[in-house]
Deep mutational scan, measured.
Amino acid sequence: MQRVNMIMAESPGLITICLLGYLLSAECTVFLDHENANKILNRPKRYNSGKLEEFVQGNLERECMEEKCSFEEAREVFENTERTTEFWKQYVDGDQCESNPCLNGGSCKDDINSYECWCPFGFEGKNCELDVTCNIKNGRCEQFCKNSADNKVVCSCTEGYRLAENQKSCEPAVPFPCGRVSVSQTSKLTRAETVFPDVDYVNSTEAETILDNITQSTQSFNDFTRVVGGEDAKPGQFPWQVVLNGKVDAFCGGSIVNEKWIVTAAHCVETGVKITVVAGEHNIEETEHTEQKRNVIRIIPHHNYNAAINKYNHDIALLELDEPLVLNSYVTPICIADKEYTNIFLKFGSGYVSGWGRVFHKGRSALVLQYLRVPLVDRATCLRSTKFTIYNNMFCAGFHEGGRDSCQGDSGGPHVTEVEGTSFLTGIISWGEECAMKGKYGIYTKVSRYVNWIKEKTKLT
């Protein structure tokens, strides 16, 4: 034993070699072989497995989906700052455009905790909710729209109204504003409101030439003092309507412009014939205590009207009353817009006519005020429907199939267009061939041609 100890002390290297040989010859039971080890760690190889990531292109799944990435790591994937920024906006807080917040056709661009709407022409605001041009839906104005110097929408209202708090709607500024039905039992019968379409306001006024200088022999019209197929109006439903009495009662109609003036057809009036105007009328054979009678003290036909040349060209006249009318729910003026808007309103496509005229061709006159909704007829169809001249200051309205029309005794009465609950004068009943005849239409004086003249002559002093 002493000898062994001496050998170990003198030859430590020998001992180490012996131990190493023993270990190498022993069977290893701690580690699995290569094949079995792979069965336990069965993990798919990654895209760049075996390579240094710093030297390969980034992978979106590896960089940002398996674990949260930084902007720089995302930049490695896209290799483009702009594309990385677009991805980053949604990656950080989701897609803010998912709810489609942009209105009126706006395009949404996502941002971090926010979004941006790219608005089409005519709109602005956070969600493109603000109209900035009158060309689109009248700028959301209830009545009139004008573009300011910086191309912003400025709404306005006709006389007797003021802008509401929203700067879009119009509200009454006087007790009985024009064009409004205020009798409670008839307010439910107000005709369907007309909503502004998209309009090209630059070209809204037709490029028409008034044929002022045409000389033409007097034409022989049949029954051209021209509501057939209409309905009984309720008291106060058309408070701007008046009836004219002269040699015979209810020979023509008219509309209240203001307390002192009536507008009617020029062919209705004769110099030297006494005319009485009755406002607030409903049943011409009954006294309903809503009527107001006034005498006409002055007749002003349009300066281009000449019955000797043509009885229905420039067929418009103004009547001055001896005493002002007292405005109330049964006696209310009709609204008159400017030339541009009167023309736009007419193009809405349908209007209402009213009167006490004959209820059928050569038949009896109506006792109760009649009204009828009539569609506008395109000019080409209008011209083809008659052998008589249709001037540019006239328009056609009615039904091709016949059966409904204005008729004798309705002449001078109103053709009105309702705009968001307020009625505007767009025409004056003038003439036609018979009444409600198939293929024939009622012919009306186009008020847009005469609004400046009306307003100039009827100013209240």
Rank of each mutant, 00 (worst) to 15 (best):
P120F: 04
E323P: 04
V277C: 03
V92C: 07
V278L: 06
Y91K: 15
D111G: 14
N452S: 13
E79V: 15
E171H: 07
Y115R: 04
S448E: 09
C97I: 02
L369H: 09
S49C: 04
V419T: 05
W431P: 07
T342V: 03
N48I: 05
S406R: 12
L24V: 08
V227I: 11
C102E: 01
G160V: 00
S99L: 13
L369A: 14
P324Q: 04
E433R: 06
G13E: 04
E159A: 10
D33V: 10
A366Q: 14
C141H: 00
V257F: 01
C396L: 01
T461F: 12
D410C: 10
G106F: 02
V199Q: 14
N5W: 10
F55Q: 15
R46C: 05
N213H: 07
L103F: 07
H302P: 02
V359D: 09
A233P: 09
C108Y: 02
V278Y: 04
L319H: 00
V269M: 08
G403V: 11
I17G: 00
Y341Q: 15
P333I: 00
V199E: 13
E73M: 03
T290Q: 07
R358M: 10
G253M: 12
V242E: 01
I316Q: 00
S365N: 10
A192H: 08
K440P: 07
R43G: 15
A317P: 01
K146W: 09
I15A: 06
V377W: 03
C117T: 02
A149H: 10
E165F: 08
V278T: 12
G13D: 04
R294Y: 01
V326D: 14
S423Q: 09
V277A: 07
E76G: 15
T85E: 10
E401L: 13
E285H: 11
V4N: 12
H267P: 00
E86V: 15
T81V: 10
I210P: 10
A37Q: 09
V199F: 14
K137R: 13
A192V: 10
T81E: 14
T218K: 08
I40T: 05
T194W: 11
W431F: 14
N295I: 02
P333Q: 04
D131C: 09
T84K: 12
P333F: 00
D95P: 12
H34D: 09
S11P: 08
L318S: 01
N203G: 07
V30T: 15
Y305K: 02
F123M: 06
P239H: 01
L41P: 10
R294W: 01
K137P: 10
D405C: 07
G94A: 11
Q57V: 10
I256L: 04
M8S: 13
I390L: 15
E323Y: 06
V242M: 00
Y371M: 11
E340H: 13
E116S: 13
E79W: 12
L318T: 01
T290E: 05
R298W: 01
K362N: 14
N42W: 07
L14I: 12
K146H: 05
E79F: 07
T271M: 10
G94T: 12
V243E: 03
E10W: 15
V227S: 11
I336T: 03
C268P: 00
T85A: 09
V4L: 13
N42V: 10
Q408A: 05
R3C: 11
Q241M: 11
L32T: 10
L372R: 14
C134K: 03
S11H: 13
D338E: 08
L460M: 12
T271S: 09
I40W: 06
C157I: 00
E35H: 05
G105S: 15
A26I: 12
T389L: 12
K260L: 08
I297T: 03
E82M: 08
V228A: 11
K339A: 15
A380S: 07
K362P: 11
Y341E: 06
V228E: 09
N328K: 00
Q90M: 10
R364A: 13
A308I: 06
T215L: 06
E401G: 10
G442Y: 06
K438W: 12
A307G: 12
P197E: 07
T290D: 04
D110A: 15
V154L: 12
C18E: 01
R83G: 14
K455L: 09
A164P: 01
T84S: 09
V374D: 00
W261M: 02
T190L: 07
E434C: 14
R140T: 06
T133N: 13
V56N: 15
K247P: 11
N127K: 14
I136E: 14
F388M: 12
V228L: 07
T85Q: 09
R384D: 12
Q237F: 08
K126S: 13
E159P: 06
V263T: 02
M437L: 15
A265R: 01
Q408T: 12
L376S: 05
T218D: 09
I443P: 02
D95L: 11
H34A: 12
G58D: 13
R384G: 14
W88C: 04
S329V: 06
E288S: 11
C157T: 00
G357R: 12
H302E: 02
N36G: 13
R364G: 11
R373V: 07
P414I: 12
N393Q: 05
S411Q: 14
G50N: 14
P197W: 07
Q185L: 08
A149S: 11
E61N: 10
T461G: 07
V77R: 14
N59H: 09
G409F: 12
G236N: 05
C102W: 00
F388A: 04
P239I: 01
Q219A: 15
E401R: 14
T445D: 01
M65Q: 12
E420N: 09
S329I: 04
G179D: 01
T287M: 14
P375M: 10
S354H: 05
C145D: 00
K152F: 09
C128T: 02
Y22Q: 08
T287P: 11
R449H: 15
G254A: 04
D315T: 02
V202K: 11
K274E: 02
I275L: 14
D249G: 02
F196M: 08
V326K: 12
F345V: 04
T264E: 01
L376R: 05
L14H: 03
P375D: 07
C69R: 03
Y330H: 12
E340S: 06
E67F: 04
C128Y: 01
S99A: 15
L383R: 14
A317V: 04
R449S: 14
G230N: 09
K45Y: 04
F176G: 02
M394P: 02
S114Q: 13
G427T: 00
I316E: 00
C97R: 02
M437C: 07
L32W: 11
K188D: 06
V368E: 13
A307F: 09
F144G: 00
D200A: 13
L383A: 15
V353C: 03
C382K: 03
V248H: 08
V419F: 12
C396F: 02
S365P: 07
L32P: 07
T445L: 12
L376W: 05
Q167P: 03
D111Y: 11
G280M: 02
T81P: 14
T422F: 03
Y391Q: 14
V377M: 07
Y371W: 14
A233S: 08
G160R: 01
G230Q: 07
H302T: 02
G272I: 02
S25W: 14
G427Q: 00
C18I: 14
V153R: 14
Y441H: 06
W88G: 15
T84V: 05
H361L: 12
E420L: 11
R294G: 00
N393D: 07
Y201G: 12
Y201L: 07
I309P: 04
G398I: 03
V248F: 08
C335M: 00
T190D: 10
F388G: 06
T209F: 08
I429L: 12
L23E: 01
L367G: 13
H267F: 01
M6F: 14
A397S: 05
C382I: 03
K89I: 06
L52A: 12
R373N: 12
V353H: 05
W453Q: 00
F360G: 11
S25T: 15
E433M: 06
D378G: 09
A337E: 01
E66Y: 04
S220K: 09
C134N: 03
E420S: 14
F176W: 05
G432C: 12
K457I: 14
F71W: 11
Q96T: 06
Y312A: 06
L41A: 15
Q57M: 08
D95F: 10
S448N: 05
H303K: 09
F348C: 10
R404L: 13
Q216D: 09
